[in-house]
Design a protein around this nucleic acid. Sequence first.
DNA 1: AAAAAAG
Length: 492
Amino acid sequence: MSFSNLGLSEKVLAAVAATGYTNPTPIQEQAIPHVLARKDVLGIAQTGTGKTAAFVLPMLTILEKGRARARMPRTLILEPTRELAAQVKENFDRYGAGQKLNVALLIGGVSFGDQDAKLMRGVDVLIATPGRLLDHTERGGLLLTGVELLVIDEADRMLDMGFIPDIERICKLVPFTRQTLFFTATMPPEIRRITEAFLHNPQKVEVSRPATTAVTVTQAQVPAGREAHEKRELLRRLLREAKDLKNAIIFCNRKREVAIVHKSLQKHGFSVGALHGDMDQPARMAALDQFRKGELPLLVASDVAARGLDIPEVSHVFNFDVPHHADDYVHRIGRTGRAGRTGTAISIVTPLDQKSMAAIEKLIGQSIPRAEGDYEVHAEVADGTERPREQRGRERSRGGRGKPQRGERRGHDRERSHEPREARQPSEARHRPEEKRGSEPRHGARPHANASHVPSIGRPEPRRQREVDTEPGDHSHLPAFLLRPVRSPAGA
DNA sequence: AAAAAAG
């Protein structure tokens, strides 16, 4: 199956070809002909299935004819989060480059006036989050009476976020005769009800069962004490020893925790960004952008990033906190192992999380291996030897100043060349209570810093190894690419 | 229990 026999216009096919895609995904193959036939569509699909292009491409074909009038958008797309809305806009920019199309993004956190000016000029595609959209309609700057096609994306998530009343209000402002495309990953009763209200004789398109996790994702759970500082310490170890780690999203349950973990990792020299809903919009966009471009290999995030965000090639997902809702787990780890790639999802599990973990395992229909203290047994030493775990365990237990064995350091020199500055300022650890004591891990052996995963983007020149670097709070085992290039002021 | 979105 190729894109060429789905009924898309020449322009759109050319744009698709230019991006290098040749074959449609199942959701695209099924949905596109219905959309072009101007049928209502009920799409049941997870993100990562190519869902966005399934409506963007036919919409571009439809929009080639006709022109927008001032304040009366021709099509409207509703998204639950600002990031998702921006992502859909990028799709229109990419595939619609050859068309003179006015695409407007109506999201909160950015200038109202600019948006209003854009609406005034007439837009073909309006992509919005509900709050800001209603704000514009209430102020009279926006009329939805000219909308020919309405897309409701991530409907089940809108439900979770309490947006359904807003969505219903918006739907009342859009002509009854419109075409509606409705996408959801799951079909809870409330969603079923609104599909009956919003859709007319919809064509049902369903791909990949909900509540499944990609087979290419390796999952593990690692036990931890309930203290937050223990979890942070464990996280750092997991980051260091992770195999083939290229980049990772670290999920926390609370915005506050996101900020704390972000700051903590920064202090320990990691190159890391943060993303949560209390950050201002430019900072949110910058963090996501840097992560996408690979400028920041690590991103600490709340569930704002759990669903739908299209970040290609996330190698690892860490659950710093186990999500309280099992379906959030599925969405979070769905950020990795996309498009058939492999991925790893590691959850830090405290005794308090046992019930949530059990619910997750029940939902996904498989048990998640417990790494226990054996986790690091799988870590390879770069020179091919493996030390006894007990020995590793002792490395830091004697006042935390154990000197690593020479042999094991060899082969890591290159990766260690970007040691965190903190390593040179051991005293800094002293005003951090969590770092005061020797950092003997609670559950098993001290892991070897496994650097075998480091891509070849480290410093090329060999560097002599340092003599001693294992002051408590010293975390110099970081692969170079995980390190911050710049250091924030000490004690900040 | 919390996050998200309008401030």
